[in-house]
Structure formats: C-alpha cells, structure tokens
Nucleic acid binder design. Structure first.
Lengths: 232, 232
DNA sequence: CGACCCCTTGATAATTGTCAATCCAGGTGG
DNA sequence: CCACCTGGATTGACAATTATCAAGGGGTCG
C-alpha cells in the first residue's frame, strides 16, 4: 500500500518536473511490436525510455534458462536507467510507442538540476521497489493476484478509465507472480466468481466491466478498444 | 549470477569514486545496538548511510502487521538514498558502525559530479535490484538458501576471509527468503549434511569451516571472532 | 474455415505451512 | 563456577497449497 502511495506521488510531483527536465534534450520516438526486445541484459546502457503507449516487461534470464518477469512498465512510466550496462532485458508486451532519452545528454544537463536527474532515475527504479512488495510473505496465489489487480486498479482510476484489460498473457502474469500458469488460472476463476475480476474473450479485465458481449466481428472491435484502454 | 557480477563491479569501480565523492562533505559516525532502528518507513529522508561495521536489515511493514525483510546490508554497502521520505525501515542486525552522509550536501555537490551522485544512489538501490533475483521462480527452499549462501560467499572471498557466520537469526533469514522458519531449518540441515553449510553453536557459517570446537569459555571467544568476521 | 496456441480442467504427487512438543545454546544470577 | 532460565532452533505429524502431468476446449489469427 505504501508503495502505491509513493507511486502516485511520483506521478503527481515528479513526472512534470522530470518531463520538463528531459525536454531540454533532443528526444525521439520509436515503435515496437509485441515480443520485440528493446535491450538485453549486459548491453551497454545508452538510453532511458518513457512509455507513451503500450506495455513493457522487464525480465531476468536465470541460469537455468528460465526467464523471470519482474516488472510490467506502462504508459507514463520511465525505465532503463542504467549507468554502465543493462541489468535486465526489456521486451514489448504490446504494440509500443516510446520516447527515447539519451543517457549522455542526461548526464550533461544533470549539472544544472541534479535533483531532477535523480528523480528520473528514481522513477526508473520504481519498478524494482515495487517488486520488493510482490510475492513477499507466503500469501496464497489468489491473494497475490488480488494484490496485483489492486495495484493495477490504481492506475486505471488515475487514468480516468472505468476498466482496463491486462495487456499480457496469463502465462506472463503467472511468471511475474511466481506461480504456475495453472495455479494462476484457478486463482483467476476464483476471483471472477467473486466479481473481483472479469473476463472478456481471453483477456482479463480489472476495474470496470468489459464491454457487452457481441458477435465475433464485434468482439474484435472491442478488443481494439481494449488495446486503446491498456494504452491509455 | 549476473547481479552478483554487477555487484562486484560496483564494489571495485564505484566505491572508490563514490567514497572520494562523499569525502567532500562533512561526515560523521554513529553506532547502534542490535534491534535498534535507523529510520522508519515514511520518515523524512535526510541521510544516506555507509556501513562500516555490522549488518543492517531493510524491511517493509505489511498491512497485515507482518514485517518483510527484503535486504541485508553489510560492510562497505550504502543504503538510505531516498529523495522525499523513507520507503522502508532500516534496523541494526548486529552491533553497528555507520558513516552518515547528509542528503542536502549530496545534492549540493551533485552539480560538480552528477555521475558520482548517481553512482551513489545506484549503489543504494543495489539491494532492491538483488531482491528481484531472490525468491523468483519457484525453486525449493533448499535452492533459495543455496542461492543466498552463494551470494554471501561472494562477499567473503572479496573480503579475503575464509568463512563468515550469518549475522542474523534464522528467523530473519526465513523471512527474507519467504519461507517458514521450520522450512528454512530443514533446508539448513539438508545443506549441512552436504557440506555446503556449517554450524557453530547456533550460528550458520558459509565459506570456510568454523573455528575448531573448544570448551564453553573458548567458544565465547570464537564467537567474538565470528562477530569480527561478519563485520570484516 | 482451419490450425495453432493458450487457456482450462482434472487427478496426483511433492513441497511447504502450521501446530505442537522438545532441545539446547547463551545469558543470568547466585 | 554452577544451576537455572529464556528464546530461538529443532523435530515430528498433519493439513493445505501448489506444481506437475495430461487431456480437452475455445479463441485468435492466418
């Protein structure tokens, strides 16, 4: 809970300052398709990113060959603040639109406003801090999922939307929560029965109800709306 | 593993730079006894700390009243880099000797060397990054413990010591690893049988073997050596 | 319309949490 | 120096949760 409050404060206080700060630099935008990677663990770190549209997942490649997703980065979030090399891999969960911020330029203008520079880096480490709260203790899978949708719910209310569909597969979410996909599925069924979660097609919705059911062609259009929703 | 490499690099490359950086400020030292707290979640953040001797634990107080330890901070480590307010609680695990670094001063001299300032803050967030690797996936309790002692082993080799005794109770370690104390105990027994872990009195030792067994009076003296070991 | 992939569901085994009792190291006081 | 005391550590038994394996169904996309 505390982390959520910190998050909202960051969004209210720092984003404007940080946004103005980075505007001093020459920025540009890039797009990515779902599954494409932005950088890999070990790459030299040259850019910080801001998500304008879509969702990014941050993950580590375990020595056992398993990849561990530890953060989902959404619209308005910054990520990729590494001084030397990348400490994780970043991939697109959805269609993606990003603003690219060169680190070299950040360090240059950092002399004028070190606080804004720190705030930008702190915004990027936000995802690591949140991770500390996830999967801690020994709550059941249902409680992990409930905590997750609660945190995601914070985003939709601040975005002024009534609902949001999870912009990634259940397999990804299971990986993130540290449970087996089957376990997550059962937990989702459980929360759906209690009305804490909704389902529309293959997508899970949190917050408001999904749009009314229609025929297949219509559903595709609704999914378009879903994409718009999770992209703000 | 990757995180460990990053850590060692930080220790080799940044610490000297960061140390020289903070030397520009007026620093002072404080002591703490085991269990005493340095700050609580929500407190205004005024200081960054460097551990000179002993160990600190960082933890969150869950809404269920349970505290979750997410990091152990040891000699040479920095912690406490928050811009606004504390995002966690810091407590002494052992007898503690710390160097206090005022944040206001850091921000002031940050204009001259923003990179060093960022490196200091990055060194502080190191513990959050490491946390991402812990408890991820669904390894067994024994594997979690094995991964932990492997990471701690890195510290002892870099410190030039042959062994180190865990400077905190098994309850704390169980909390950190996200398992029940009984489960951790069983895992410890398992690793002790395989020689991956040693026991001396009530303390667990990793790396080199504990000092030879002697009589009670002697053992107390050995434990003093243990304290010296975990304090470097 | 068809194929592929993800989701779902069931059954079973393994791991772990929980509860309870006991042990023992380390400290205390006599 | 020794008996006592206290709290963490240990051990066992059991219940609960979850991982795993396997099979089937349904959505999504070509």
């Amino acid at each position: 809970m505390e982390g959520v409050r910190d998050m909202s404060k960051l969004a209210l206080v720092n984003d404007d300052q940080v946004g103005a700060f980075v505007q001093q630099l020459r920025l540009w935008r890039i797009q990515r398709r779902p599954g494409q990677s932005l950088y890999h663990e070990g790459d030299p770190a040259e850019f910080v990113y801001r998500v304008d549209k879509g969702w990014v997942r941050l993950l580590l490649d375990g020595e056992d060959g398993l990849r561990r997703i530890f953060a989902f980065v959404g619209p308005g979030d910054y990520f990729g603040a590494n001084l030397q090399e990348r400490d994780c891999t970043a991939e697109a969960c959805t269609d993606l639109q990003l603003t690219v911020i060169p680190v070299a330029g950040l360090l240059r203008i950092g002399r004028t406003d070190p606080v804004a520079l720190l705030e930008l880096f702190e915004a990027c480490t936000k995802h690591y801090r949140e991770r500390v709260e996830v999967g801690r203790g020994q709550p059941s899978a249902a409680e992990k999922l409930r905590a997750f949708i609660a945190r995601m719910g914070e985003r939709i209310t601040s975005g002024g939307r009534s609902g949001i569909c999870l912009p990634f597969s259940q397999v990804n979410l299971a990986n993130y929560l540290g449970v087996a996909p089957e376990t997550l599925c059962r937990a989702a069924v459980q929360l759906c029965e209690r009305g804490e979660l909704a389902r529309h097609g293959r997508r899970l919705w949190i917050g408001g109800c999904p749009p009314p059911r229609q025929k297949t062609g219509k559903q595709a259009k609704e999914l378009g709306a879903c994409d718009a929703a999770h992209a703000w």
